[in-house]
Simulated scan of single mutants.
Amino acid sequence: MSQGKKQQNKKPATGSIRIIAGKHRGRKLPVLSAEGLRPTTDRVKETVFNWLMPYLYDANCLDCFAGAGSLGFEALSRGAAHINLIELNKAAAKQLLANKALLKADNIAVNNVDVLRFLNTQKQQHFDLVFIDPPFRQNLVSQTCELLENGWLAKQALIYVETETDGDQPIPNNWQLLKEKVAGQVAYRLYQRT
């Protein structure tokens, strides 16, 4: 068999994410293996959603670097009103659409676009909760935060930021740090816009 045929038959490696709580509790969703894709671990996700529990119900959410959709699908399961997933990787975005169909979730929008380009477009809505969990070592956090401040955030929006522990990036001055934790090489923080 030729090398070309071998590659055509080779399917991308897959894994899964698990929804921890809420309407879809225990549900596993398939995830494609893609470069830079790091689904948030269950341990971190559990902590983050304990922080967010009082704010989730009926929230309008934006997941800036959706990847596997771990944070967005968890928010949906726990009562968020609408989730907007932004994912640049075409195969990952296609998997997000497939998982949206699996959950029969018509309150999820999947956008296969660069998040910085998306945030530079006409603002159509304000988000109550935003997840920023970009690929590491690409300095995307500060640019994303800056663009969010151009009319995308609700008055007292909550912003979850996940970065590598050695990657300190500037955050807008009007964002107050509410919670902060480190797990291995990952630092995760919850801010509130004031």
Rank of each mutant, 00 (worst) to 15 (best):
R38Y: 04
T41P: 06
D42V: 03
R43M: 05
K45D: 07
T47P: 14
F49P: 12
W51F: 03
L52A: 08
M53G: 06
L56V: 12
N60C: 05
L62R: 05
G67M: 08
G72D: 13
E74M: 04
A75M: 03
G79D: 09
G79R: 04
A80T: 14
A81Y: 11
L85M: 15
I86F: 01
I86D: 04
E87K: 00
L88I: 09
A91M: 02
A92E: 13
K94A: 15
K94V: 14
K100M: 14
A101K: 15
L103C: 02
L103G: 07
D106T: 15
D106R: 14
N107C: 05
I108N: 05
V110M: 11
V110K: 08
L116I: 15
R117M: 06
N120Y: 01
T121K: 00
Q124F: 08
Q125P: 00
F127Y: 15
F127P: 14
L129R: 05
D133P: 11
P135T: 08
P135G: 01
N139T: 00
C145G: 03
E149H: 13
N150W: 13
L153K: 05
L158R: 09
I159L: 15
Y160E: 01
V161A: 02
E162S: 00
D168M: 10
D168E: 15
Q169Y: 01
